[in-house]
Design a binder for these strands. Sequence first.
RNA 1: GCGGGGGUUGCCAAGUGGUUAAAGGCGCAGGGCUUAGGACCCUGUCACGAAGGUGUUCGCGGGUUCGACUCCCGUCCCCCGCACCA
Length: 997
Amino acid sequence: MGQSLFWNRFCPIPGAATFGPSPGKGNLLISYNILYCINLLKSGGKKLLENYSAKEIEAKWQNTWEVEKVFQPEPDDRQKFFLTIPYPYLNGNLHAGHTRTFTIGDSVARFRRMQGYNVLFPMAFHATGTPIVGLSELIANRDPLIWGVYTKLHGIPEEELSGLNTPEKIVLYFRKQAKQAMQSIGYSIDWRREFTTTDPAYSKFIEWQYGILRRLDYVVKGSHPVRWCPHDRNPVEDHDILKGEDATIMDFALIKFRMEDKILPCATLRPETVFGVVNLWLNPDVNYVMAKVNNELWIVSREAYEKLTFTDRTVECISEVPGKELIGKSVTNPLTGAEVLVLPAGFVDPDNGSGIVMSVPAHAPYDYLALKDLYDKDLSMYGINADLRAIKFISLIESPGYGELPAVEAVDELKVKDQNDPKAEEATKMVYRREFHNGVLKANTGEYAGIAVSKIKDILLGDLIEKGMAEIFYEFSETPVICRCGTRCVIMMVRDQWFLEYSDMQWKANVLRCLAGMKIIPEEFRAEFENKIDWLKDKACARRKGLGTHLPWDKEWLIESLGDSTIYMAYYILAKYVNAGMKIDSLPPEFFEYIFMNNGSADSIAALTGISLQTVQQIHDDFAYWYPVDLRTSGKDLVANHLLFFLYHHVAVFPERLWPKAIAVNGFVSLEGQKMSKSKGPLLTLRQAVADNGADVTRLYILGNAEGTADVDWRNDGVESTHAHLERFYNFARDVLADGSIEQNAEKTLVDRWMLSRLQRRIQEATEAMENIQTRRALQSAFYLLFNDLRWYQRRGGKNQLRTVLSAWVRMMAPFTPHVCEEIWETGLGEGYVSLAQWPKADEALIDPKAEKAEELLERMQSDVQEIVSVTKAQPKKITLYAAPAWKKEMLGLAVQAASGGKLDMGALMKTAMAAPSITAHKKDAPKYAQKLAKAAHSLSAEALGLDEFETLTREREYLASAFGVPVEVFSADEPGADPKGKSKQAEPGRPAIYIE
RNA sequence: GCGGGGGUUGCCAAGUGGUUAAAGGCGCAGGGCUUAGGACCCUGUCACGAAGGUGUUCGCGGGUUCGACUCCCGUCCCCCGCACCA
């Protein structure tokens, strides 16, 4: 539905919509373009159309760029610039979020190209992984939810969607859609290099890469815990979860307390407190089970037992044990050897941990409260007759603000009544937080004494595991976690899994070194990268299901899809030749070794692969020219995953000189303030945005409304206003180009010099901004502010520099709105394509501070007069202006000199001033002005002295008169003429006096 | 909870020690142009003001400084990531 609507809108030609998109046939856009161009040729002529028409202009230039191969670079003697953007995943249409990242990349590519770099900007498509497979099944089953999402949000006609019932068809379909979308917005991509990650040659490339990683011992086997649905017998991903989406997997320590030949494991997040255990807690109303776990006898709650069956332990239930029977028995602390009692507590949740809890009343409020509750209870039913008050608390953490027993203090402080009081939870968190951040272990922890609590967990747990005193037990941070099928999820230990060993210290160190040598934009994200590298753990890198490449040495596994997308930028070099028909029957690792690593010789590789010697050599040379990646731009969501892996794998595979040079990160796009969602909406597709607004407007809006990690909010009123601005730009260009009265070589007036001066500044600002990938800042200068400058220029009667400014302006806008700029450029501004024209260079010699100051003065005069008129509600008949007298200028000069230290001594200033004859002559008025200057000592500036204000005002008298609509007279306050109200005395440098009558 | 980013005048958003009542855009108001105008141009848009001024502002509370939106401390709120998923 959305699709046909789109084409109707896009094609002004009657009947065009009827030849709708047909898979496998030529690209509709192009067919349309050809028709258009034929029409254009008939009409001939190079004159801008009277009215701006995005559709016609954009189709024309997109077609021209493609036919004329404008963006197909080859190595030459220029400096290269290799820019890449993460390829999109083909499970839907490109949306506004993609549009932002890609358009930023395209504008940078265009900018660098115009700066004279040989720019390589390729694009490909990501298809490996599981979602596309899942999607094909859902489409084949006509899943109503998916059906709605893809017809409504993604705008796919039902008849087309129903055909997408295999992963292959989905890949083909979305690949074509995505490419058309990217062409419709005018990206300067070298399409000769496109590929899909399921291509056979790409698989060979991935195999080569994983061979290297394996050789380096970066791929290892291990186990890891996943969220698991016992019903579906599958790991669950976020979108499979009905409830508990935010739950994370926490690793508890399971401390093995001994009771004769049995083990009572206690789950805890604070293993260090094992030193302070004075009893265990068990829930008397809960049924426990005795189970054989590996070769030990464990007693745990029934729920914990069930969880254990999903771990990598061999478990066997032996018998049930009521909680009551265990209470009153004594157990041995494995670490300290202390004998402690098992006591009853209602707060013990059988569904959390093992259902057995160790009690550390000195540091855990719940333990303290539960113990206190038992003090006066009769426990003889459990065979406990001892006085529990005799149990001595063991304090083992020293933290500022707390004494011996933090739990007791916290309970008192918050006035917690008992273990059922909700405030008990609060007290627990408070103690935990303070002790974790500021606590240090005391002497009674032996070899661990003096270590910070925040550092101890991993060390101690490691030691305990080694000694057989503890194990790790995984538990969700919040429960329950429910699968979409309604089943409660568990944590499953997947065994014999292949891992990328991202935790390897040496590897990490190299990545950090790579990062240190890179440019990160925005720079604030460097810390984020460093933290994430630090945090990164081993990552499972193979799966059983999905699309992708098999592990070369273990064909049962498919390489996980993020892991196959790390160094593929190198493959772009090769893809061009593959697409051109290169023989790919045999692409052994030696082939890649030669072209990427320069190992071996072209001769032997040609012989080995059957590829021509010349091609082998050429690919090798291409790679040597284009690599490394100069810039990778991406959305901020990829920081903690793809961008990290991108660095890791480059560092592992390539020598240092081929490591990436820069990463730029950008934020997302929201719609009318709402977060976009591919599955729930709202969603704006790239094609819809372009169909509704045109490519240039879409680009301008998305680049101009935010930059860096801030989100762009796509708002209709804003887009409309952007459209109006662009139209004004077009109309302005049309008028300038049609204006035969412009004399470019006429002598430059003040305002001409001002205009050129402003232009140089705008060029400087925009250039600097683009070099830092600040598209918004660049557009503020290059578009909006320059626009305002031009308005002032024209208002001041400027005209002869309009063509010069327009030429620079169009070139500055070309990276952002390339179509309309080509159109304008073609009309006689310059040769060839503006896309390949030279980015304007600021000419320092044209920066004219005097002219700028003069115009500032005029602006100031206008706004001051305006203010006076509005305040006095007067109807002016005549305006007289008085420029500052010479003596005040002199005094200001002296004051500025004297104030250079920051302080201005009024007395000293007067003294020096009185030495100057011109000032002496005004000794009545001088002190008053001196005082004013002294008051402003910290912000004095000699700027106002750089301009002869009297001369300027006199020269521009006519302009001011016409601006005010009344006659204007100009005097110097030195010779004020009639001056009926004595206003001339108010004149100061930078602020001529005004008299309105 | 941990890590990163952020709270600016009706809205979006610049601004990192003085030139800032604070760029630019949107919206709104007035005027001009015009047959008309959603097109374009000008002006205003924190408050008060019969002379270009004054007062009060940049999440909240303190502090440093001659001077803070800008630096420091505390506090509240918002957004993003925390994975085996692209």
